[in-house]
Design a protein around this nucleic acid. Structure first.
Length: 489
RNA sequence: GGUCCCAUCGUCUAGUGGUUAGGACGUUAGAUUCUCAAUCUAAUAACACCGGUUCGACUCCGGUUGGGAUCACCA
């Protein structure tokens, strides 16, 4: 009997650098890491890669964490000293990097390079011009110990390079793409640290993945070229390489990596436009993944349950905003009216329609009339504004239905006025009964209903007149009809 | 330019050697309707190309073409 191998806990991480607003592509990478770890009862770790002091900004980090929480992705660990909900930050881990770097140098896997930036750059340009791999020429690779000591003592500026082997095949089995093979000769000795306080990406990334015991690295395919370097580093340090899964990129309409000109790219912009986190998550998950069934509306829980790396697509997916809008509308229609109202309040406040973010039966009613027409929460403003305006400001000709003459319009509105005035029981059911009965008498129902609806809204399109009358109340309804009649006086 | 990755309707995709190539968004038409939505019904539309393997290729292999990513003392 072979004893069942003890399963190691699955640990994934999302490792963004806070150099800009949190991007849709990053959100998907985070999501897939999150789903995979949760599916396997593992851990999802957030690690802020802020080694670039120039470009990293704390505000982006804060925004990123807020966005992650908004979407319902909470990370599991952080350095204990700064609280369980803080992420790991590379800027706070220099001590760890130093230890690993010293060991690497000690064991001869890394060395000080005293070449000037300019020399290296011109060398690179030259190699590229003759069509060869632009790698470092290894000038300082075998400097003897005494020389290095001497230069260091003289204070000569140096960087630390990793000694990459020559002519070695580096192979890894990508969980999404299968076998990927690279010749180490095309890599060259790359810089891993500027000095003992400033470490570079490939190095910190590897050290952290080792230190945090990450065993599944799920990231964008733009990292495929980094992977062989990282594998070399890991092996030199004597650790196991994690499993890799490289996600295809999210593309713009031009099939290039999605960028600003493709419209909204940051999560904040989607929040502002009024997309729901549930809808965004659902949509993003299906960009490059599907369950293999025809089900496509998924809650986060269901995604976790059905997720698997095998079902991830290899080719890049274009971000199709039309589909997102459809999904978002779907979620809005399904939402309980109380909740929808709460979520719309900030938009109404911002537009100056209401002074405080407080719900009322009136606001709730107004919003409910437009629930099924809403694709994004922000659209609520231009839909329900008529409920809050004194002056609707429309052209009187808008009141005419098809071939109506001025006098027909006036007659129609006067009829409506009379009916409303006479309505004892001011309910939707009763108004419907009264008005539909009257409308039936006409050759075309529009003769009664169109002028009425426009008098209440001042708009070409809107919710139906009966429900509008109910929502507005008898008094306001009469006022608006009268105003419309006056336009013809 | 070097290296690597990718290729089914306009878009997201199902498909794992034999299917009328399925679904969704979009679009178009119809039903409903005072309008706009929502809803229902229908239609539209795809295996990049060329070779091989095979009785049989969308499916496997090779090549071509096309697209993308990446080549920092950024991440």
């Amino acid at each position: 009997m072979i004893a069942k191998k003890e399963e190691k806990e699955i640990r994934t991480r999302y490792a963004p650098s806070p150099t800009g607003p949190f991007h849709i592509g990053g959100a998907r990478t985070a999501l897939f890491n999150y789903l995979f770890s949760k599916k396997n009862n593992g851990k999802f770790i957030l690690r802020i890669e802020d080694t670039d002091k120039e470009r990293s900004k704390r505000e982006f980090e804060t925004q990123l964490m807020g966005n992650l929480k908004w979407m319902g992705m909470n990370w599991d660990e952080g350095p204990e000293m700064s609280g369980p909900h803080d992420p790991y930050r590379q800027s706070e881990r220099n001590g760890i990097y130093k230890k690993y770097l010293e060991k690497l140098i000690e064991e001869g896997h890394a060395y000080h390079c005293f070449c000037s930036k300019e020399d290296v750059e011109s060398q690179k340009q030259y190699l590229m011009s003759i069509g060869e791999a632009p790698i470092y020429n290894g000038k300082c690779r075998d400097l003897d110990k005494e020389t290095v000591e001497k230069y260091l003592k003289e204070g000569k500026r140096s960087v630390i390079r990793f000694k990459a082997p020559f002519g070695e095949k580096i192979v890894f089995d990508d969980l999404i793409r299968g076998k990927i093979e690279v010749d180490s000769s095309t890599i060259g000795d790359f810089v891993i640290a500027k000095d003992f306080d400033n470490y570079l990406y490939n190095f910190t990334c590897v050290v952290d993945d080792i230190d945090m015991q990450i065993n599944y690295v799920i990231r964008g395919e733009d990292h495929i070229p980094n992977t062989p370097k990282q594998i070399l580093l890991i092996k030199a340090m004597g650790f196991d390489v994690p499993r890799y899964a490289h996600l295809s990129l999210i593309l713009g309409a031009d099939r290039k990596k999605m960028s600003k000109r493709d419209g909204k790219t940051s999560i904040d912009e989607y929040i502002e436009a009024g997309y729901l986190p549930e809808a965004l998550i659902n949509f993003i998950a299906f960009l490059g993944w599907n369950p293999g069934t025809e089900k496509e509306i998924y809650t986060m829980e269901e995604l976790i349950h059905d997720f698997s790396l095998e079902k991830i697509q290899k080719s890049g997916a274009i971000f199709n905003i039309d589909k997102l809008d459809w999904v978002n509308g779907l979620y809005i229609r399904k939402m309980p009216i109380k909740e929808l109202t709460e979520r719309c309040l900030p938009y109404l406040k911002k537009a100056g329609l209401i002074s405080e973010e407080i719900s009322s039966p009136f606001i709730e009613k107004a919003i409910s009339l437009y629930q099924e027409r809403l694709k994004k929460l922000s659209e609520i403003v231009e839909l329900v504004d008529i409920f809050f305006k004194e002056d609707l400001g429309y052209e009187k000709d808008l009141l005419k239905w098809k071939t109506m003459e001025d006098k027909d319009v006036v007659a129609s509105l006067e009829k409506s006025y009379e009916l409303v005035l006479g309505a004892e029981e001011y309910t939707k059911q009763n108004l419907e009964k009264i008005f539909l009965a009257e409308a039936e008498k006409m050759e075309n129902r529009g003769n009664l209903l169109w002028p009425l609806r426009v008098s209440l809204t001042g708009k070409k399109s809107s919710a139906g007149p009966i429900e509008l009358m109910e929502a507005l109340g008898k008094e306001e309804t009469l006022k608006r009809i009268k105003k419309a009649i006056q336009k013809y006086a």
